[in-house]
Design a protein around this nucleic acid. Sequence first.
DNA 1: AATTTCCTACTGGTTTTCCGGTAGATGCGC
DNA 2: GCGCATCTACCGGAAAACCAGTAGGAAATT
Lengths: 211, 211
Amino acid sequence: MSGNTIQIAIVDDHPLILEGLQKLLDNTPGMEIAGCFSTAAECLDFLRTSYADILLLDIGLPDASGLDLCRDVKTLSPSTRILALSNHSERSMILQMLQQGASGYLLKNVAADELVRCIREAHEGLLTFSKAIREIMAKPSASALRETPQLTRREKEILLLIADGKTTADIASFLHLSPLTIETHRKNLLQKFGTPNVAAMIKLAVQLGLM
Amino acid sequence: MSGNTIQIAIVDDHPLILEGLQKLLDNTPGMEIAGCFSTAAECLDFLRTSYADILLLDIGLPDASGLDLCRDVKTLSPSTRILALSNHSERSMILQMLQQGASGYLLKNVAADELVRCIREAHEGLLTFSKAIREIMAKPSASALRETPQLTRREKEILLLIADGKTTADIASFLHLSPLTIETHRKNLLQKFGTPNVAAMIKLAVQLGLM
DNA sequence: AATTTCCTACTGGTTTTCCGGTAGATGCGC
DNA sequence: GCGCATCTACCGGAAAACCAGTAGGAAATT
């Protein structure tokens, strides 16, 4: 697989960036470009037959979302470390890429030496970020500060059970309560979240980290 | 607020750890212990009247979940940087703490100099982790590799609308399709996710990063 | 050309949720 | 002791979701 040089694949639909990265990394000792692609499909094709230690992945590709591609790459080649490259820096996107198995996240305005450092760290099996990202992530996010409905103990308990796919009757017998009681709690939950039905409520609850 | 020394608060229900941290940090130049607490309630009380630059937060407290406390602290004192301290190192917990606004995550077996480094970095407004955590996070997670159901374009589209709280009728008129068609898609979605109802499906979908 | 997948649409029936109330018991804080 | 929040429980009815099928046409793949 990997010799003593780090094999790097790059996927980015912007030709200039692709060229720039290619030149930079080819002239860096210990690193080697294994392939350059401008679409998700090409990139996945490559990984079906060849190997890369690191994949620099532009998450703004035209033919697939960064999240999908990240997941697909990890399925195809779990040991390839993915470094996400992006122009935007929304916390939620960063967190989602990490959830999908990315090993790091860099803004595209990253300095050359910082990029090289991040590739090295990712190759050593470490999570890594450019400094700008570390600053953004350490700031309290608006979404984290979004007021979470104040739930009672019972309500939290029932919320979890609902999210597990239990029906009112299931929950009632599980908690040894009347189904009517559970219905009341369910009703209050929907009201507190301000959502019209459980689908929207569960989405909100998961995004707020309540599960 | 903060002078030239970093004001540190600690909350941990394990007396030994509390003592150890206290001794260590009090003997570190540039750092000062602002308060030590063994329960979430005490900690929140303190923050209502006093200030800390950094809060070392044990996420295994008896009287509140780490996530709840993190959220409450951030609401009470948004500029306090939270460093999560924990014995367990599940990816999902780490991601959730970050979502709630934590500035870093350390395992309790962290070395003294690493702890000091992390506190300094967090105080500078940077996201920071102990090395063990960076290793764990860079590994492909089981949950990320959990096979995501293969959804068609239509199904993804409808999944998002369902998660937004739209009813079958809403979606049908929005997409100019028969409600019966939407029902079929909904049914297929439930089957592909293997969930008994939308509540469980939406939870899974959000956790898989599909939203 | 043949096969598979996807999108569309339907039948008919059961279960569950959703909505609008009301209301007694308990425990907690002021 | 009084108020407030919480937990419990109920009614009746409308709306929506859920289940188990069938089926034709379009599009992509082989």
